[in-house]
Design a binder for these strands. Structure first.
Lengths: 338, 338
DNA sequence: TGCGATTGATAAAACCTTTTAACAGCACGA
DNA sequence: TCGTGCTGTTAAAAGGTTTTATCAATCGCA
């Protein structure tokens, strides 16, 4: 019923319209082989006129490079994945590479299905991204005929992996607080079985030394709230700053502090982690926090898979990308601005 | 350096190993043409053994159906898009269809670039999804040789479009409040130039009639907070329930009510909209709200584009999918549970 | 035995592009 | 005049699959 007769233009149409052979047309369009400048111009003009666009399937079939990659993610909610995927897509579209998005929902069957579909489509590479869980990939990725890049997830020892630099990010937070004269800094963070939580906590402990305390719990507001209540209920000196492992935790902590009539930032300064704008901008006062530069992470992962797919060498192992301090008002430093 | 010799198996390998021609192999595998049952079995067994998987590029080139679709979105943050995309992908993977994700960032140049890439890849269809903005698509989609399905965005008059049923969703919220005996219901929602906000507000006004008041503002916590302060500062009777246009607004409203020492849900019941779990679960008390069934929306859009790409008829015009009431504790009805 | 019908298999074309090898034409030097 | 080298163009092959048309063999039946 639809497109009857409105067939897509092929290079054959170009050749005929320009009065040359298809090989000449191809050479002229791609600048390959030997072509007379005048012929080349004519072919290109004709191609433009009739709106010729090469069929990516045919091209990929021949060149064995589909100029497409797959992105396998187990993040249903998308708060980490989508900004990253946008970064990947953004950097690759300029190189003519498109991105298949495959959400696995942590279901190994689904992951396997997606993986096979990607391989059938001859993708040039795969980016595997998990949420911050220390999870094994839901599917065997190690002996694939195409390169794999891991983001937020650890691959085999010799794989190419990107993470945010949690250690540096945590130090950024602590240093900021110290520079503002805070000395009794508390750390409230997520579950101990998250690698990211452990790294951030260790970095914090290294920086604060004596009297430092890291409280592990959940990645939730509730936990932030509860932890603050606990600390302020017990006897002894109170912290003058709190470094939270996530913006949600920070939000819970801020709410609890307000309930306790503790002034922010006068009495206690608070720093979060994630720069999840919808949370960080809405706390009162707005939250100073650490941005993991998800888009940049996507850029780097995209470029890495691009290089790998061309056979170019890429530094192997874990690359940690620096985090960025975003100053808002929860630490009370109108001087220190970004 | 990599895959030297480990070439992918082709149907030619299958044919040779089974001692038949490639046409017979193809027929046997696909159940087309006439094939001896015994031969068919043998071919299939051999294909399985050597791990043959057909090259989707070659297949698509010939059949003119790539079994891939594109998803064009301008949602940077992903809170609407990713759950939907997961729904699309989930329903399509079982039909052997993969999804290209293209984030346009509302940049027309980028949108055009993505669109051309999709067409070059011979995608079977496109799903265009905007956030709830009443925006024109950033790119001309109307005279395409492939079908387009719109979600959260209005296409031309005769296009296939899916929306959540904002009118029914709002009625669900209001009815719930009324059933609980609330009579002075206030509505706080987003900007008036959002179609969704207008529809929900109208539905609310229709249901509440006399004395009903819809306050338009921003999609932010801050606005929810401010609106409540305004209402409770002015003289006259106070509402005993608030229906908010988003969970974020509801959260701001709840915070403001707490500051005013108004008991929730005893004095005022609150209903949100979105069921954005990370917000709705974290309010105190947890928020009763309206779920837009994003995943189901994705399912339906996926199935629609699938049918269209096969040339099957699909009801044209706007289809509105029912929303669902999610009861938590902000309305105080342990009896009424879902 | 001879003929038409049926079965099972195959060669070849098609999809669209890129690349390799070959070819024709021409200028040049010997 | 004859080879040599260069230029611009083209025919053909390749990539992996599906489909159409053809072919050989077998069978039933007169």
């Amino acid at each position: 019923m639809k497109n009857t007769g409105e067939r897509r233009r092929t290079i054959y149409d170009v050749a005929k319209a320009a009065g040359v052979s298809i090989s000449t047309a191809s050479n002229a369009l791609n600048g390959t082989g030997r072509t007379n400048a005048e012929t080349r111009e004519r072919v290109r003009r004709v191609a433009e006129e009739i709106g010729f666009r090469p069929n990516a399937l045919a091209r990929g079939l021949l060149s064995k490079r589909s100029h497409a990659i797959g992105m396998l993610t187990n993040d249903t909610y998308g708060r980490l994945t989508l900004p990253m995927a946008a970064g990947v897509s953004e950097v690759l579209v300029d190189h003519g590479v498109s991105v298949f998005l495959c959400a696995t929902n942590n279901d190994p069957r689904l992951a396997q299905l997606h993986l096979e579909a990607l391989l059938d489509r001859q993708v040039d590479g795969i980016i595997f991204t998990a949420t911050r869980l220390d999870l094994e990939p839901p599917v065997q990725l190690s002996r694939l005929p195409i390169p794999v890049v891991y983001v937020f997830a650890e691959g085999p020892a010799d794989s190419v992996t990107f993470f945010p630099d949690d250690e540096q990010g945590a130090r950024l937070a602590v240093d900021h607080l110290k520079e503002l004269g805070r000395s009794r800094i508390l750390h409230i963070t997520g579950p101990r079985d998250y690698l990211a939580a452990r790294i951030r906590a260790q970095s914090y402990l290294d920086a604060c030394g004596d009297g430092a305390e890291a409280m592990f719990g959940e990645w939730s507001e509730e936990w932030g709230h509860e932890a603050v209540q606990t600390v302020f209920a017990r006897p002894g000196p109170k912290p003058d700053a709190i470094f939270c492992g996530s913006d949600e935790i920070a939000r819970g902590a801020i709410d609890a502090l307000r309930d306790l009539d503790v002034e922010i930032p006068t009495d206690v300064a608070v720093v979060g982690f994630d720069n999840w704008e919808v949370v960080a901008r809405q706390t009162r006062p707005p939250l100073t926090t650490i941005d993991m530069e998800l888009k940049e992470l996507g850029h780097r992962a995209g470029l890495a898979i691009l290089s790998l797919s061309k056979g170019e060498p890429v530094p192997v192992g874990i690359t940690r990308l620096p985090c960025r301090l975003v100053v808002r008002q929860s630490c009370g430093s109108p001087l220190q601005s970004d």
